[in-house]
């Protein structure tokens, strides 16, 4: 069954258990009830069809539901990103850019500070994930950025 979706949590395959019954309470918001024997669990089920989030007692559990083919494609893309070609360095948190330490065309080594972002009321240095040349700096000091915003673009190191 090549096309069957496999459930994984934290990269580890996980099997559903038999015996549960399921009902939506508020489908738009993902509220659901799971019952088995006398046990009732009020949970949230959000997302789908490939990436789900189930919330149990306030804890969000990310569940992926990928086919074998989906998984191979994702792994290949990830390896490509890591080793070759341009890289985008993104903000992992929303915050305020307080300092930009590099400029375009500058060579950087892995671990060099690129941008300092104030987030969580702390200053965090965003460092180069690998060596390479800075193609573009996409932010300026004083700018407010969203989580996931591209900060700096890196090219391969010059041969």
């Amino acid at each position: 069954m090549k096309d069957e979706r496999e459930l994984r949590i934290g990269g580890e395959p996980v099997a559903p258990e038999a015996g549960w019954s399921f009902a939506w309470v508020d489908r738009r918001h993902g509220r659901a009830l799971m019952r088995r024997d006398e046990r009732v669990e009020a949970i949230l089920v959000e997302g789908g069809p490939m990436a789900w989030v189930v919330t149990v007692r306030g804890r969000r559990i990310e569940v992926s539901a990928l086919t074998h083919r989906d998984r191979l494609l994702a792994e290949t893309a990830e390896q490509g990103r890591r080793h070759h070609g341009p890289a985008e360095v993104r903000a992992t948190l929303p915050g305020l850019v307080v300092r930009v330490s590099v400029s375009a065309d500058q060579e950087v080594a892995e671990g060099d500070p690129l941008v300092t972002v104030e987030a969580m009321k702390m200053q965090n240095e965003i460092r180069a994930p690998r060596s390479g040349r800075v193609i573009a700096v996409e932010v300026a000091a004083g700018q407010t950025i969203a989580s996931g915003a591209v900060l700096v673009r890196l090219a391969d190191p010059d041969p």
Partner: peptide
């Protein structure tokens, strides 16, 4: 994460997916 919660989450996703995607092939 406990095994019980992993299993509950997987069961919930399986059920929700089955519920949201009725029979068409594939």
């Amino acid at each position: 994460l406990t095994d019980a919660d992993r299993s509950l989450a997987a069961s919930a996703v399986a059920a929700a997916a089955a519920h949201l995607a009725p029979p068409p092939s594939g």
